[in-house]
Design a protein around this nucleic acid. Structure first.
Ligand code: MN
Ligand code: MN
Ligand code: ZN
Ligand code: ZN
Lengths: 138, 138
DNA sequence: TCGGTAATGAAAATCATTATCAATAACTAT
DNA sequence: ATAGTTATTGATAATGATTTTCATTACCGA
């Protein structure tokens, strides 16, 4: 998903396209790492020097609301965001360099059905995340 | 795992047993919900009125270090702790009341093997969490 | 081009967490 | 059991991240 698509999405939802948003969107859209607000701020200022940290927070909030990005939970912290995957996908993260990849094909049908029966819970969603070392870091 | 076991663990690791720690341990050990430091503080003060919030933070830190509790990540926040499960288990959380259950039997061998081959990652661990509605809330 | 108003960034406020520190109390060695 | 050592405590202050406020700017539909 390209930066332009994100900007179009923002526009379609009644948000204005500004230099600050362009800078944030461009950096987050092309990153293969989950980025913290401060990291987005530092990167974004390379594109748009006057960018404010507050605007980064506000823009990330909107991108999350539109499901263009998602929050990434990690042992070291949970305040980082990454471009949303296509369809039903989960993240695989490098514990060394932070490189992120989406994967698909997990099948938890049998498991959730069995657990649902055993516990009486109605299971609505699942979080799955894999950690390891990428090809470069292993 | 009972509160007494936890206290014994603390003692074995060179930590002193105090009234403050008793209060924290007792409340966290018997809870079926993930508790935030503030919640532990409120509950703990029912057992030990003089308990300080700072001590709650410090005690939770030690319990986590000894793997007696674990941090629980949720959409609403990631600063909550719950008694650690036995062996290889994951959490199932009620989206309405917060009730938590451990389950086991997930098998991701085939999946991780296939993803490892496809991506070149060496996969070391996984996070899995189920969300739904408990028997009471559904 | 213009006007209404969403968006901005600087600054201040807030909130959770962490550090400091003098007083206390748990444990060890007598 | 007692005393001495020192880990632990809670109050307070400090910190750091996130949010709120607000006057100014600039996007964009008419
Ligand atoms: Mn899945
Ligand atoms: Mn598992
Ligand atoms: Zn790597
Ligand atoms: Zn419930």
């Amino acid at each position: 998903m390209s930066a332009d698509t994100w900007l179009a999405q923002l526009h379609e939802n009644g948000y204005r396209i500004t230099a600050a948003r362009r800078a944030v969107v461009e950096m987050v859209a092309k990153s293969t790492h989950a980025l913290t607000p401060l990291e987005v701020y530092d990167l974004g200022r390379k594109k748009y020097r006057a960018l404010g940290l507050v605007t980064v927070y506000r823009t990330l909030e909107k991108l999350e609301e539109l499901h263009l990005i998602q929050r990434v939970h990690q042992p070291m912290g949970c305040q980082a965001f990454i471009s949303m995957g296509q369809g039903h996908q989960h993240l695989l993260l490098c514990q060394n360099c932070g490189q992120a990849e989406y994967f698909e094909g997990d099948d938890l049908e049998a498991l959730t059905k069995s657990i649902s029966k055993k516990t009486g819970y109605q299971i609505n969603e699942h979080w799955l995340q894999l950690f390891g070392l990428c090809a470069n870091c292993r």
